[in-house]
Design a protein around this nucleic acid. Structure first.
Lengths: 130, 130
DNA sequence: CCGTATCCAGTATGATACTG
DNA sequence: CAGTATCATACTGGATACGG
């Protein structure tokens, strides 16, 4: 391939640490991450309101997800030290910049997910007849 | 809270099964999936050539990843029953349609990943001084 | 209100050896 | 060449209880 005298010499040219696909996915592909980002799309929101909006998320997982996003620079955390405290979260400009490619994914789902479901049903059908 | 006179009544409106972000990510966010798709971007490719191109992937994980993609209708598998057999993989039209949003993610990485790394370094720095 | 700490179960991945 | 089978391990996520 990359040597004119060989027909099938192939060197590894794809790796986890280099592929741009993998690097973003590493950031956004934890179970709750996409949902938490989605909850912040409209602007500043309190911890407990995120928790109320997302069905089934525990405090532990919400906190953990927010901390990772904060560490990656995608989310900002603002504390008002009243009693009880008010903690508000929002996307940083870097976080906002991620919305565009994520919306592209979302649109793909709207248009095409029905075909994925059909493919799965068909594949599983064939599987059972064997 | 859950009464009509409260100012901050919030019902869950985000869930794993409905959010479009989460549904695509479920398809493409396994460890090797993005890399395998990446290896097929240029067209038909043999099993062993994918394996040679992707650094560190085992036969087990490659097969498992390809089977999932096939089940989801994103990849087609073509067998030539010679001895030894030739098995070729390629993206289906549905699989090809995913390339566009994935490339958007890739471009985001090219432009912005450096900021993620800086944010992480800064966050971890602060962490240690505590 | 906004978390942390602990422990535990389920899943994802990996190493290795074998096969048509 | 293109897989499968088996076993081991690591990581993720959930339940529960407690704290400033």
């Amino acid at each position: 391939m990359n040597n004119p005298f060989s027909t099938n010499a192939v060197e590894p040219d794809i790796s986890l640490s280099i592929c741009g696909y993998s690097k973003v996915l590493d950031i956004i592909s934890n179970k709750w991450t996409a949902l938490v980002i989605y909850a912040m799309e409209d602007g500043i929101i309190r911890y407990s309101d995120i928790r109320r909006r997302i069905e089934g998320i525990s405090k532990k997982m919400l906190t953990q997800t927010l901390r990772q996003l904060e560490r990656d620079g995608l989310v900002q955390r603002e504390i008002t030290p009243s009693v009880p405290p008010i903690v508000e979260y929002s996307l940083t400009p870097l976080g906002v910049s991620l919305l565009e490619p994520m919306r592209a994914l979302n649109q793909w789902t709207s248009k095409n997910y029905v075909w994925v479901e059909k493919a799965r049903a068909s594949y599983d059908q064939v599987d059972q007849t064997e």
